[in-house]
């Protein structure tokens, strides 16, 4: 299936089966979901950002494993945003699936996710099972922390810009992904 056909199929499939449209079209449901999306963002950036900055050398005297205890709350923020974000996507699928800013948001999310996984694969043991509490993170962990901060700022930027790249009717469809309404 080519990417364009997949996008069209996704929009139609979501439209036909979405369980949340009625809920999201009630008064204030959309702004309340948006507010939760922003709260989740703060929780995620606050906790993950604090950990990233620790890896980069802020608050160096505190063991990395101690600061890592904030990470579950960052994941809670991420979960809040997956749920609230899905509510938007499942209500207005075409506004996201044909939106270039949404494509970039997914790209930055993929980078952030892959990068975080890399941290646990490459650095977790060295950082957490070190018998002496490691005060300075290994260099590759610092690089991962810097990429993490940039990727999350990218996610916020692409997310905030969604509204300025709403799709219009297609005139040409020669891009890799559709960024306009094909029908």
């Amino acid at each position: 299936m080519n990417p364009h056909a997949l996008q069209v199929w996704l929009v139609h499939a979501i439209r036909e089966h979405s369980p949340v449209v009625d809920l999201m079209r009630t008064a204030w449901a959309w702004p309340i979901a948006e507010s939760f999306h922003f709260l989740g963002l703060c929780l995620l950036i606050g906790c993950v950002g604090t950990f990233d900055l620790r890896l980069l050398g802020v608050m160096r005297r505190v063991p990395i494993a101690t600061v890592h205890k904030l990470i579950p709350f960052g994941l809670l923020g991420f979960a809040i945003n997956i749920v609230s974000g899905s509510l938007f996507l499942l209500t207005e699928p075409d506004q996201y699936i044909y939106n270039p800013s949404f494509h970039f948001k997914l790209l930055f999310l993929a980078i952030a996710g892959t990068n975080a996984s890399l941290f646990y694969v490459t650095s977790f043991r060295r950082v957490f099972t070190d018998p002496s509490p490691r005060l300075d993170a290994p260099r590759h962990a610092k690089i991962i922390a810097a990429i993490s901060l940039c990727a999350w700022i990218g996610v916020i930027t692409a997310g905030r810009l969604l509204t300025f790249y709403r799709p219009i009717n297609c005139t040409t469809t020669d891009e890799v992904l559709l960024t306009c309404y094909p029908d």
């Binding site: 963002l41 703060c42 929780l43 950036i45 606050g46 906790c47 505190v62 600061v67 709350f73």
Partner: peptide
């Protein structure tokens, strides 16, 4: 939006610490 994430986010992390999360951080 980025400034909100930084200000409200770090304030939230500090509040969580005061509530006892990651209490090893002085």
């Amino acid at each position: 939006a980025i400034g909100m994430g930084v200000a409200a986010g770090l304030a939230t992390a500090l509040d969580l610490r005061i509530f006892g999360v990651a209490r090893g951080i002085p």
